[in-house]
Design a protein around this nucleic acid. Structure first.
Lengths: 193, 193
DNA sequence: CTTTCCTGTTACCATACGTTAAGGCCATTT
DNA sequence: AAATGGCCTTAACGTATGGTAACAGGAAAG
């Protein structure tokens, strides 16, 4: 299981067994059952989580009580409210588990200690953030440029594995539309092709 | 002018005169006249730019020829197609100047050399990326949650200086709506309040 | 086994935003 | 002075998506 983290890091920086062993000591384990919260609005997000198993979502709830999914996280992804984590201010987001999940958790002081203990990880996090920023910018471009139908088709292409695991109403929320609209879009697509 | 870069870096990491002087050698200057391109679709984005003066925009052009602004950049901000820059693949974006502008430019090999020469800059870029990611995630949250009117009001609050410098049709494009819609929204707002 | 909840679908109407077209204002060019 | 082009606005109409409501199938809970 922990091998997943090792290969995740190795994808970006070369790390020795000894260095990885040192890194490993800064993480702790966390199990979440389906529907269990990891972060609730008003809490400070004190750690970032690396998903070993399962699926989580990061979302806001607006004044009408509607949920808006900012991010999904499955195996090999990280999850957190990065703003609250970095600033130490209370979060406006929720994080909970869509499936029984298994995380490796790194709190703020552990991360800082790790960066001191294994300087190479500084580069790892930079590269991770770069990849994240690229993906998030893509999503912005898609949201300001594309129709809901196009965004759904892109989602199918980009995350084929997620479609099978996540309920459609959750995907609609991620796309920024209602479940009813997504249902209509799916109907039209199936009629056309 | 270069002091702007110094204080920009200093905001995130402590850097000595000597270290800054070393950093400085990796940058080159670039002047752009209004409407001049810095990046065109199909080109590889070989450098990132730090804006000393002026205003630039980063945008895509869709199949209908419509422009969609992904990012504005004014003084003290960075501009690039980070995906093309990192991957070395041809860009699908344009970058041009909305005003006569003055950039400090860092190409890929210079950046890598700088990171070797001044390891502290590794942390600087990590922190810069973190801030960028936070802002971009905010924008995603706003695009999937808020009405165009709300997004416009948020824009006014977040970037009051930009509103005065950038034409309204450009702001509409940034918000993901047409100039006509923005005009209508402004009218309704002025009638209400 | 029955009940309840969760998910997905459909339909009807409402609304926000897009499209097309036109006109006016102002700065720049000729 | 006249002409041009960029920018903003307005209006009438079209379309995509939202809101509300109802229903059905399947999973989960009792």
């Amino acid at each position: 299981m922990v091998d997943l983290l090792r290969s995740h890091i190795q994808k970006r920086v070369n790390i020795s067994d000894e260095e990885f062993a040192r890194c490993r000591t800064f993480f702790s384990h966390k199990k979440l059952r389906k529907k269990q919260y990891w972060l609730q609005e008003g809490d400070v997000c004190r750690s970032i989580g690396f998903v070993l198993k399962g699926c989580l979502r990061n979302y806001t709830v607006d004044a009408k009580g509607e949920e808006h999914i900012i991010q999904f996280a499955i195996e090999d992804w990280w999850v957190s409210d990065i703003y609250s984590f970095l600033s130490g201010t209370p979060s406006k987001e929720f994080i909970d588990a869509l499936e029984d999940s298994d995380l490796l958790v790194l709190d703020r002081s552990s991360r800082d200690a790790m960066l001191d203990a294994v300087p190479k990880m500084e580069r790892f996090f930079r590269l991770l953030l770069e990849a994240n920023l690229v993906a998030t910018r893509r999503r912005v471009a898609s949201l300001i440029s594309d129709s809901a139908e196009q965004r759904y088709l892109d989602f199918l292409k980009s995350y084929p594995n997620l479609v099978e695991r996540v309920p459609l109403n959750q995907i609609a929320s991620f796309l920024g539309i209602t479940p009813q609209s997504l249902s209509r879009i799916r109907k039209e697509l199936s009629e056309k092709r």
